[in-house]
């Protein structure tokens, strides 16, 4: 059976696929950074004493976590042009959608990280005259992030896989590019096998790296 396979289709379309992979990487990176920044703000709001911020964060996180990602991607694709009056294209609407969606998940991870730092640390920081926000920035957040690095990176692997959902707004990420090649050349089996191999290699390598980081944390 393997004799019927034509793997030349892959080598011939490598530049096209590489472009798609770059879109996937770029989207993952931007959504990761945006999600962590916005997620940190949500987590800080959640643990704050100001009721409005606390409930805003709780509502936001619970709402977003009850939505399928694919719906959120659609939403922003159609919603943003309505709000700002002009289309911003699939890529940027996807970046915003992923950032907003991932922030809800990251905020819960970051909140747990913040709570893992002893409250005496904040007393000690404030006793020297640092303000609440200075204590957070210089003392609490760096410790929280150190505790969270493995979980955040694991979530990044999931995010990378989830970026394949952008086919719904016709964005040419790696998955969509593979699909286009597969269907135009009628080589579905070869292409989807290859796509699986690429996703597996990248995610496996990344997970392996995370394990290394975790082990290093244990030994220090």
């Amino acid at each position: 059976m393997i004799k019927n396979f034509d793997f030349d289709v892959i080598t011939g379309s490598i530049p096209f696929l590489w472009k798609g992979l770059q879109v996937s990487f770029y989207l993952t990176f931007l959504a990761l950074v945006g999600g962590i920044v916005f997620g940190t703000l949500l987590a800080l709001m959640r643990i704050s004493n100001i009721k409005f911020l606390k409930y805003f964060s709780m509502t936001y996180v619970n709402f977003l976590r009850s939505m399928p990602l694919i719906l959120v991607i659609f939403w922003f694709f159609f919603l943003i042009p309505v709000i700002i009056g002009r289309p911003i294209g699939g890529f940027y609407s996807a970046v915003i959608a992923f950032t907003m969606f991932e922030a809800a998940y990251y905020s819960e991870i970051i909140r747990a990280g913040l709570l893992s730092v002893s409250s005496n640390q904040i007393s000690a920081a404030r006793a020297t005259g640092l303000s609440y926000s200075q204590s957070m920035i210089y003392v609490i957040l760096p410790q929280a992030f150190r505790n969270m690095v493995p979980i955040l990176l694991t979530q990044a692997v999931v995010l990378f896989q989830d970026t394949s959902l952008v086919y719904v707004v016709s964005l040419r990420d790696f998955m969509t590019a593979s699909s286009i090649v597969a269907q135009s050349q009628s080589r579905l089996v070869e292409m989807y096998l290859f796509a699986a191999l690429v996703y597996f290699s990248i995610c496996f390598a990344f997970s392996f790296m995370i394990k290394r980081i975790q082990n290093r944390k244990v030994t220090t």
Binding site: S123, T128, Y138, Q143, R146
Partner: peptide
């Protein structure tokens, strides 16, 4: 006002 705590509370990072 300086303050010293039971468990030191140095910043570990």
């Amino acid at each position: 006002i300086g303050m010293v705590f039971q468990n030191f509370e140095l910043y570990p990072h």
